[in-house]
Nucleic acid binder design. Sequence first.
DNA 1: TTTTGCATGTAAAGGGTTACATGATTAC
DNA 2: GTAATCATGTAACCCTTTACATGCAAAA
Lengths: 177, 177
Amino acid sequence: MSLKHAILVLLDKEPRSGYNLLKEFKNSLGYFWNASHQQIYQQLKRLSDEGLIDCDIQQQDGKPDKKNYSITPYGHQHLQEWVNQEVKPNKVNDALLVKLFAGHLCPTEHLETELKRHQDIHRNTLDKLLKIEKRYQQLSSTQQEHYKLPYLTLRRGILGEQAWLAWVDEAIKAIKK
Amino acid sequence: MSLKHAILVLLDKEPRSGYNLLKEFKNSLGYFWNASHQQIYQQLKRLSDEGLIDCDIQQQDGKPDKKNYSITPYGHQHLQEWVNQEVKPNKVNDALLVKLFAGHLCPTEHLETELKRHQDIHRNTLDKLLKIEKRYQQLSSTQQEHYKLPYLTLRRGILGEQAWLAWVDEAIKAIKK
DNA sequence: TTTTGCATGTAAAGGGTTACATGATTAC
DNA sequence: GTAATCATGTAACCCTTTACATGCAAAA
């Protein structure tokens, strides 16, 4: 639903290519919005068709053309209207929990290794987020003020991952018994 | 991806109608898998076409026919194979955070009321989950052992909601400053 | 020499949302 | 009388995933 708006916010800050958007999703937005390159390129086409963004093609030698997208006044207005509307709370759909719920159909060892595998992934994610937080804390207070809102989204990522890890500890212990 | 498997797990425990599945999704599975009635009826048709479930039609006077679905041996096998495979970690896509990220485009008051609106919803969810937990804790220890895995999914819901609420407190304070 | 990074796409299939559609019964 | 519960579906649209497709440059 909001890939559209996530892209618009980024283009509202500065014009970028699809590839650059992809990098942003992997880095700064990854802890609250994820998108594949296919999704991004398709969405850019649609946004362009709707007149919400413009495209400026830069030729590069050797490399394929680089398409630089920027938000139009209409797109900016659209974004602003969206921000002022109510957002639906997120729907929870977690396949790992479906699996746990059906865990009587497989050996306990499998559940345990699977939980540990996910634990590794989440520990990794948390590490990355904490490193980003450290960088934020080293900024001047005016800079911190400037990045206040993105920092809150980072905090959500951190608290979410910590809670997930606390849960998986509980879960692994409970399964072993 | 796993609506299919969520339905199969439920039908593996006992045969049900689409309507009954919907209720289960609203109650016991709602904190880790959500589905609308349209999705469920469509999925039931597909699962039936694939031979994973069977349908037994019960006539009722006055009411429309009730379709009672049950899992087939092939469906059970399919489910078992799925449980033994690796599951991908969940993708995070949170529209509220996209909005916060774009929060400079709207009045601070709007952000605050929006966060508080979501806070109410999450508090409500947590309350419900804690009530279910209380019921679990009053069971005998053999019963508790029996419901161990579903209880772990409940715990995930509780820890997740608590972390969310802790975050929103932080966020509201930070925005007010 | 193999992988990572740059840089872009199409097509088909599957999953999810929104809107439309019906109709009886029961509880307040 | 009005809302909730029971009980089922179709159709259009949109979003997401998976697979296919290309090709250069730089670093390891």
